[in-house]
Design a binder for these strands. Sequence first.
DNA 1: GGGTCGTGTGTAGGCTGTCTACATGAAAGC
DNA 2: GCTTTCATGTAGACAGCCTACACACGACCC
Lengths: 114, 114
Amino acid sequence: MKADALRGHLDALILATLEHSPLHGYAIIEALAARSGGELDLPTGTVYPALRRLESAGYLRSDWSEETGRRRRTYTLSRAGHKQLAAARSEWTTFSRVVGGLLGGIPDAGPGFP
Amino acid sequence: MKADALRGHLDALILATLEHSPLHGYAIIEALAARSGGELDLPTGTVYPALRRLESAGYLRSDWSEETGRRRRTYTLSRAGHKQLAAARSEWTTFSRVVGGLLGGIPDAGPGFP
DNA sequence: GGGTCGTGTGTAGGCTGTCTACATGAAAGC
DNA sequence: GCTTTCATGTAGACAGCCTACACACGACCC
């Protein structure tokens, strides 16, 4: 699945990924891939700018760590981020109901199947 | 709801709207508003370019009519359009399953809770 | 006769967010 | 030593939706 289809929903996915535990960028990509059953494979050039965007919007905080000898920037959901995630969930519910209704929708009125 | 969130799904909605009967642009906007329960209110500057895009992609055909004294361009779903709609439905199913799954989320599964 | 509202189609230019491609560097494995 | 994996990041291209505007005709009211 292309991230292109996510337009406007990627932020929510990232926030949701960080909901239970802080992660660094690379791990976020892996987590999304794992939790989607391999369906999502986001390029780094998509995720890193998104993280900086979310941080500058105040939804994430970041801290550098070097424990493993590798420098990692670990992102944590802020209070505003939690709030934003809740809002995003609600928006998604509306969105998927509307689109699903329109696409799946309208029990037929058309010529039938056998 | 903003059409901005539709990024990449608008085409599918338009095709679905035309599935059962041909409509002209203005009527498509009204139909989408009605069938979404007023949730969708697309600006003409979004829909008309989309229609031309879909036509030049071969998914729609258009015919001018002037019955009421008003010139209308009525769009009809082509065979390729029907096929595309089916593909879009299938994509939507995957997409909403994945995003819904990630957002609604997985009861944790995170390593290391105390 | 003039103003305004609803219907109807369309273009121009801007903005946002994703894409591809590239650059950098350290650790792990061969 | 060399390649792969982990890890972060930037630059520029591109698609698609946005706002704002322009045009035209009918109906209605004053």
